[in-house]
């Protein structure tokens, strides 16, 4: 067991013939992920990866031919909203959007539409999912994590790699790693994933990696205190960030003193979460 993706995942790639799409399709297939097809409008009928993976013109035709149950999106930001709408309308129940820089207004429309269709979205602006030894659906380097019993959830991309790598170096493996992305409007939040980990028999403890801005970590702390029976360790990035400065992520804006690292750490510690001083310390806290 694991959450969201595993050996039974049948994945299609939207934007499969693009630079990033093709590179990461190769990596995902090499990892053993069951990539059943791809979509690039105007390139239907072609094949990629030496004739192993068929390309379709639309998500609908890809779904009809391959019975895909998940899609990953690698298209540029201005086309990503349309790609998400298309996937939802084609009946794909799980959408992972890697694309960075999607307009927030577009994301609000996408999220509200997907909620009506009961479609699960991970991202955008995220590194995707990794269930070590089973499926890699995203851009997390496969060789930095080993199978195990720790659920990992993070708002950040590369910081997640840091933690997985530190875990591996200590012989600690992950059940599933979920990168939820750093955008202010996204598909899945900490609580959604914590709840999935709480119910996943393979997950025995959880690493939660947050950052400054917003109040998702504080809400997660409330959830942990009220509902989680499994131990949680955490790291919050941006402890030294000057207030009021924007550190790249739209989500990482400190608004009126709220959402600071100190506030988040306090809330998490009050919920019984051990908070690390630096990311390589997290695995030692579990």
């Amino acid at each position: 067991m694991s959450i969201l993706v595993d050996k039974n995942t049948r994945l299609i790639v939207q934007g499969i013939t693009g630079n990033e799409g093709l590179f990461h399709t190769t990596q995902m297939a090499a990892y053993g992920t069951n990539v059943v097809g791809g979509v690039t409008p105007g390139k239907g009928g072609e094949w990629v990866l030496d004739g192993k993976i068929p390309v379709f013109d639309s998500v609908k035709s890809a779904k009809d031919a391959t019975d895909a149950n998940a899609t990953i999106i690698f298209v540029p930001a201005r086309f990503a909203p349309d790609a998400m709408f298309e996937a939802a309308d084609a009946g794909i129940p799980l959408i992972i959007c890697i694309t960075e820089g999607v307009v927030i207004h577009d994301m609000m429309r996408v999220r509200n539409y997907l909620d009506q269709k009961k479609v699960r979205l991970i991202g955008p602006n995220c590194p995707g999912l990794l269930t070590p030894g089973e499926a890699k659906v995203g851009i997390i380097p496969g060789d930095i994590a080993i199978p195990g019993n720790v659920g990992v959830v993070s708002r950040s991309g590369t910081l997640t790699y840091e933690v997985l790598y530190a875990m591996k170096n200590l012989g600690m493996g992950a059940s599933t790693c979920v990168g939820i992305g750093g955008d202010p409007v996204n598909g899945t939040n900490f609580i959604d994933v914590l709840e999935m980990f709480e119910h996943d028999p393979k997950t025995e403890k959880v690493n939660m990696i947050g950052e400054i801005g917003g109040n998702e970590e504080e809400k997660a702390a409330d959830f942990i205190a009220a509902k989680m029976t499994k131990p949680v360790a955490s790291f919050i990035a941006g402890q030294t960030a000057p207030p009021g400065k924007r550190m790249g992520h739209a989500g990482a804006i400190i608004e009126g003193g709220a959402g600071t690292a100190a506030d988040k750490i306090k809330a998490l510690e009050a919920a019984g979460v051990k908070v690390a001083k630096h990311p390589e310390e997290i695995p030692t806290l579990l």
Binding site: S154, R155, G157, T160, I209, A237, G238, A241, A252
Partner: peptide, 10 residues
Amino acid sequence: GAGLAMTSMD
């Protein structure tokens, strides 16, 4: 990555 950049500063 923004998260890792902030972490590196930390």
